[in-house]
Amino acid sequence: MFLAVTLSVSALAGCSTDECLDNKNALPLAGFYSSEEPLQAVSLSGLTITGVGSVGDSVVNDRGSISSTYLPFKIDSDTTAFIIDYLGSRLESIADADTLTFAYDRVPWFESAACGAMYDFRIREIATTLHAIDSVTCPAGIITNAEGENIRIYFTVIPEYD
């Protein structure tokens, strides 16, 4: 009987909490903010964000209002660039398209048996044109699979909320 109890205990222990609660890859997630104090999140509508050199669709081609977007990095290169086009938005007549360029180190990382293995991106440099963008930051300096925003894009022109 004690052996049965022991096996039951071990079975329960083995079945417990082996689930990935974060992402299974490092996902750069950029939030939109106004460059003016105090810090304020903003929403933009009509944006088109496209990866430079991508062969597929745009990252973002949404006529709706968005306050954040994923910016997937390349894994065969140490730099990735994106074009933010304001055509179709209120900024169309105010600003030309901006180009964001990220330079990073790819760091192999094994997170857990549930989440698996991936590349983390340790940011070396962020370069941007300044048409509608004031600045871009990565507060943590590294992008991991942790759920949540890890890049901030500050716009100089505060768009009107739709």
């Binding site: 990866g51 062969v55 997937p72 894994i75």
Partner: peptide, 8 residues
């Protein structure tokens, strides 16, 4: 590791 957007 796969990145579908870049097809890599």
């Amino acid at each position: 590791v796969d990145v579908p957007y870049w097809d890599q």
